[in-house]
């Protein structure tokens, strides 16, 4: 381990020691460092900001309880431990809410719309932003179609911003396996998106070629197919 890494670990150990005693500053720092990453993981799965915040809070409360009762034994692997706790909590929630899953994400669209407004102010075209919104929505739908293992590695890597070494520690698998799995998952995602795009193009082409009088009939038919 590098000297810089050792210093970081030592600083984190001090921080965790203070946090285990319930010191406010230590918790502010820990939450500032990790909460948005945990939140993003939860948000990616449950699609609701409120629920994601609730999950994030319960993860940190669990961490606080375990730290205070000296149940944190994986010294030097705090992030792996934190995200393992988070993934367990998210899986529990996903199992509970599976029957009520919502395929759309209005919050993300509105958040992106806010960003679009900012981009508009800086001169970007609204057509491009609209395309981005659709692209994000398509990407979310494609993520839903991935297997749990593939989705997990994508989310931990990109939403949780974990390194492959941390992933290997957390999932207890060789780093090479995880690198290969990550690549396969991205390729699968790309295939799903390409397929969805071509279906959309076909639908659009079908709609454009259909005479106006039968337009509504075709659309109803295509929706039924979906």
């Amino acid at each position: 381990m590098s000297a810089e890494g050792s210093a970081e670990n030592a600083a984190l150990a001090v921080l965790l020691e203070s946090a285990s005693k319930g010191e406010a500053d230590a918790w502010r720092t820990l939450v500032d460092l990790y909460s948005r990453r945990v939140f993003a993981l939860a948000k990616s799965r449950c699609r609701s900001s409120e629920l994601a915040e609730e999950i994030t809070q319960s993860v940190f409360v669990t961490i606080a309880t375990k730290l205070s009762q000296s149940e944190y034994t994986e010294k030097g692997r705090f992030e792996s431990w934190l995200f393992r706790v988070a993934m367990n909590r998210i899986r529990d929630e996903a199992r509970r809410a599976k029957r009520h899953a919502t395929p759309t994400d209005p919050e993300a669209v509105s958040a992106l719309a806010d960003r679009s407004r900012m981009s508009d102010a800086s001169g970007a075209s609204s057509a491009t932003n609209e395309e981005s919104v659709q692209q994000i929505a398509r990407l979310r739908l494609a993520m839903d179609q991935l297997s749990d293992a593939d989705r997990e590695i994508i989310e931990l890597r990109h939403h949780g911003q974990m390194s492959f070494q941390q992933l290997a520690d957390m999932l207890n698998e060789p780093m090479g396996t995880l690198l290969a799995r990550h690549h396969r998952a991205l390729r699968k995602l790309k295939e799903i998106m390409s397929e969805a795009m071509s279906q959309e193009i076909d639908r659009a082409a079908g709609t454009a070629l259909t005479p106006t009088t039968t337009h509504s009939t075709v659309r109803i038919g295509s929706e039924k197919q979906r």
Binding site: E23, A24, D32, S35, Q57, F60, V61, I63, A64, T65
Partner: peptide, 9 residues
């Protein structure tokens, strides 16, 4: 979240 975690600790 920081407040909840601090109280829990």
């Amino acid at each position: 979240i920081a407040a909840a975690a601090m109280l829990a600790a």
